[in-house]
C-alpha cells in the first residue's frame, strides 16, 4: 500500500536544490533537478552522515557537502570508486504539488 502525502509545492524547492522533510524515521531530502524531476532520499550520507540536502546537485546526482561522495538520486547508490547507498522513497508531482509515499516512513523500514 502506498500512502501519498502532499509535502508542498514544487516551486518551494529551488531548481538544482533540495528541501528537507522531517519524519519519524529521520530527515528525508527532497531534490529537484535541472529537468524538474523530483527525488527523495535519506538526508544522511553513507560515509559520515553528511546532510546530502546541502550538496551540489548535478544531473541526477548530488555531491555530499562534507567529503564529496557522489550519490545517485534515483538509485541512492554511491558513484565512482565509493561504496554505499542511501534509502530512496517514491515521490511524484501532481498539479505542481509534491507527493511523497510515506508508507515506509511511518511504519519503519522494511528490509
Amino acid at each position: 500500500m502506498s500512502d501519498w502525502t502532499d509535502i508542498g509545492a514544487l516551486s518551494a524547492i529551488p531548481e538544482r536544490g533540495a528541501r528537507l522533510v522531517k519524519t519519524a524515521m529521520g530527515c528525508v531530502a527532497v531534490f529537484r533537478t535541472v529537468d524538474d524531476e523530483i527525488f527523495a532520499i535519506d538526508d544522511a550520507c553513507p560515509h559520515k552522515g553528511g546532510p546530502l540536502s546541502e550538496g551540489i546537485v548535478h544531473g541526477r546526482s548530488v555531491t555530499c557537502p562534507l567529503h564529496n561522495m557522489v550519490l545517485r538520486l534515483d538509485t541512492g547508490l554511491a558513484q565512482g570508486a565509493d561504496e554505499g547507498s542511501v534509502a530512496t522513497y517514491p515521490v511524484r508531482v501532481e498539479a505542481g504539488r509534491i507527493l511523497l509515499d510515506t508508507e515506509r516512513l511511518r511504519r519503519g523500514r522494511v528490509a
Binding site: 509535502i7 508542498g8 518551494a12 522531517k22 510515506t102
Partner: peptide
C-alpha cells in the same frame, strides 16, 4: 527564510 526551514514536518502526524 523559508529555505532554512523543513519543507514539511511529518513527525507529528506519524506519532
Amino acid at each position: 527564510r523559508e529555505l532554512y526551514a523543513p519543507l514539511a514536518d511529518l513527525t507529528l502526524e506519524a506519532a
